[in-house]
Design a protein around this nucleic acid. Sequence first.
DNA 1: CTGAGAATGATTTTT
DNA 2: TCATTCTCAG
Length: 744
Amino acid sequence: MADLLANLNDRQLAAVTLPPQHALILAGAGSGKTRVLTTRIAWLLATGQVGPAGILAVTFTNKSAREMVTRLTAMLPLDARRIWIGTFHGLCNRMLRAHHQDAGLPASFQILDSQDQLGAVKRVLRALNVDDEKYPPRQVQWFINNAKEQGLRASSLEAPTAYDQRMAELYAAYDEQCRREGVVDFAELLLRSFELLQAQPALCNHYQSRFRHLLVDEFQDTNTLQYRWIRLLAGPGAAVFAVGDDDQSIYAFRGANVGNMAAFERDFQTPNLIRLEQNYRSFGHILDCANELIQRNANRLGKQLWTEAGVGEPVRVREALSDQDEAQWIVEEVRSLVRDGWMRADIALLYRSNAQSRVLEHALFAAGMPYRVYGGLRFFERAEIKHALAYLRLIENPADDGAFLRVVNFPTRGIGARSIEQLQDAARARGCSLYEAAKAMGGRLAAFVALMDALQNDSLRLELPELVEQVTERSQLLAHYTAERDGEERIDNLRELVNAAIAFLGDPPAEDSDAPLSLLAAFLAHASLESGENQAGEGTDALQLMTVHSAKGLEFNAVFVTGLEEGLFPHENSANEPSGLEEERRLMYVAMTRARQRLYLSFAQTRLLHGQTRYHLRSRFIDELPDGALKWLTPRNGLRATREGWGGAWESGGNAWRTKGTQQAAQQGAAGVWSGGYGSDGRTAASGAPFRIGQTLKHAKFGEGVVVAYEGTGSDARVQINFGAAGLKWLALAVAKLEPYPDK
DNA sequence: CTGAGAATGATTTTT
DNA sequence: TCATTCTCAG
């Protein structure tokens, strides 16, 4: 016991040993959040206050759920599978499997991932002859998920406009299709579980009295439905231990509601609120920057990170001439770090949006520097894997039309669009599944039915891995990719799927139901809920490239936050959203607090974006940091305009440079501007205009403004000027009357 | 069915 | 710019 609690600081210890009451733990970045959460569970168990069955711990990612289990089993000897630890979706799946009948689901219901869901939506639209110009599938999908995350069914939606009315109808039709096919989407897992508990008081009571302690990780990321699910499950008697950091709430765009933290304090009348503010990750200067930045946000619950580690190195800031120059400099800097003994794997390059990785990758590749990019397709999302899984899904559930359509003609077996249309008509007329309808058809469809029947037979006598192998062979998937030029990797992946099946057999999920689920169905659920690893190559010492979002929860000895430019970070689109800027600032806070020892912030004067050279001001976030903690590697006042009066431009919509019909910026023109380097005059020589970026000008109507960007040559030349309150304007040099204004 | 060329649209992402 | 999706001719 003493062992368990050793090395906790006072606050951590207080949190871990709280009485069985509701508690809100405000855990700052690097304050030992996961440690507190897992030690709390271990302490509850070790003191005999509760048994493993009385605990429910919920996270957002499989990764953090796994980490919790690993740490917990290291602290205590126990069968972690008896504890309900998992993601919201994983736990809801577990509950629905156990009570599928009460929930109105078939025993082996399958789970649609976002891709599958989009496909399902498209089919609904086609079946109902909906104009997908007016109702784009993605938008319909978003509408459905959004409604579900609010806990709303189609029937309970308010539909004030004809459009909303139609959307609600599509939602209803989609749900009906899912029911027919025996599938559920991600949001449905949660909503169905919630509705199950609501509709079955006895069952609800059972779980309420069983789970004495609910522990929620990353509470700031919960959405409305998740919050209500927790509240329902807690009932009157359980203690909810919510851990989160409102300053790290960066997922509002996918439904997360930071307001849930304040709501929790209110609804649960939380008697315990503990702040974990001591940071064990970063040195002082880095934390000073983070604190100073984040305190500009309003409506915080309030927190101030501190460390015993000393101030450490100042935060390095550098202005680059261009995105390429930025990348080049990073390569050099990383090289020198590596020469000094730093590990590449301990260095991260962070960016706001994925498009920015290209330039960085290009420079790294040219320099022969090993790197690894996070994000992109994961294992279970790859096309070849989805194909193989679709065959397996169809074996398990012949009513799964989505799976049927995916593989009926892949690899191609001469079943064209019109035979499929005929088939769909027949199925609709008879009110049966495509597979059922195909049984009545002759020719090539009959051959496909025969194939599936054979595979179904295989499934009865073969072990799961053998079945997977058999499917890839008999379906001709392997043959198809063997014939393809670049099919080698895909074949490797298909073999890897067999390995995944073997691994799954070695560690099957816990069962709470009397009627055990078929291993195949369980494997398919596993594949949907665990999208798999992002990328291989874990072993090599490679530089880490990722978006700031994916860096959340990680830490590195050195971190480069790149592209710190207005419009990019903070992103221009965030200006349109309420409190969008505050979320961007939190994102910056997350980015900076990833660094242990050394933090670099960089921005570029010009950047090639969507095929256009764009000129950005440096991010306001840099200017929000305390001077004393910074070390400028380039002159602080570079070639830049001072950013006075910029707020106005931001509020005015920030989209001004998107004006239609602008001429492409001439590369040479841009080069002309910057060729002089730092401190040069940098006149827009190509156009002959006597202005430079950053110069203050006067306009007869709009008043004083700052030149922000420049585009075109000769008589097409235009400048973009920020007039503060009057906003951002593009003005043609040939027309506009602009007077130079003495620099401040 | 396939492949070429046009059109499109482009934060952030887990389950 | 560029990757993906769509459309149409062969």
